[in-house]
Computed example of a mutant assay.
Amino acid sequence: MWSWVAHRVTGVLIFFFLFVHVLDTALVRVSPEAYDDVVSTYKTPIVALLEYGLVAAILFHALNGLRIVAVDFWAKGPRVQKQMLWAVLGIWIVLMLGALYPVLGHAVRELFGS
């Protein structure tokens, strides 16, 4: 049940990100200067953590979605859904560890000046 809840929550979070992304990108048509101001506010360590959260949401949603497809369309899917959930979580953790430096590296360099 918790994977069902997490799948819905990550889907909603991704939707809201896309909504904000479309709005701030559309701002370039109104005023390129205003767009530059808005984008410059995104270059903070807090936003870098939010980006990492976005990566977490997208990866979990995608991997869990593949698991759901396997449960629905694979004859053995319902019998092994718990093992597939653990596999999804394991793959997700490995990918999230791999995303640490690419996503948060610039924020760490900015905070500590290296």
Rank of each mutant, 00 (worst) to 15 (best):
L111V: 12
V22P: 07
A87T: 06
Y42T: 15
G77M: 14
G11V: 01
H61L: 02
K76V: 13
V38C: 06
S40F: 04
D72E: 14
W86K: 09
L18D: 09
A99L: 06
W92T: 00
S40P: 01
I91Q: 04
P102S: 07
G98M: 02
V47C: 00
D37Y: 07
Y35F: 12
F15D: 03
G105E: 06
V55P: 07
V108I: 13
A62L: 06
V88I: 10
L54G: 15
P102F: 03
G98Y: 00
T10L: 05
A56Y: 11
L59S: 05
L111M: 14
L54S: 12
D36G: 06
T10W: 03
A75Q: 06
V20G: 03
F73N: 14
H106I: 09
K43T: 12
R79E: 11
V80P: 02
V9N: 06
F112N: 02
I14W: 10
A87H: 01
F60L: 14
P45S: 00
F73W: 15
V30G: 05
V103D: 01
I58L: 15
I93V: 10
D24I: 05
N64D: 13
L23M: 13
R109Q: 13
G113S: 13
I14S: 12
W86A: 10
R109L: 13
I91K: 05
I68G: 08
I93A: 12
G98V: 01
P78L: 03
H21T: 04
S40Y: 07
G77D: 09
L97I: 12
F19P: 09
P32D: 08
E51R: 07
D36E: 11
L95N: 01
E51W: 03
L23Q: 11
V39P: 00
I58D: 14
A62E: 00
L54V: 13
V94E: 04
A62Q: 00
A75H: 05
L50H: 04
V88M: 09
V9F: 13
W74A: 05
D37Q: 08
V20C: 08
V108P: 01
I93Q: 03
F16H: 07
G90D: 08
V69M: 02
A26E: 12
L97Y: 06
V80D: 04
V12Y: 00
L63E: 04
V88W: 04
Q83C: 06
W92Y: 09
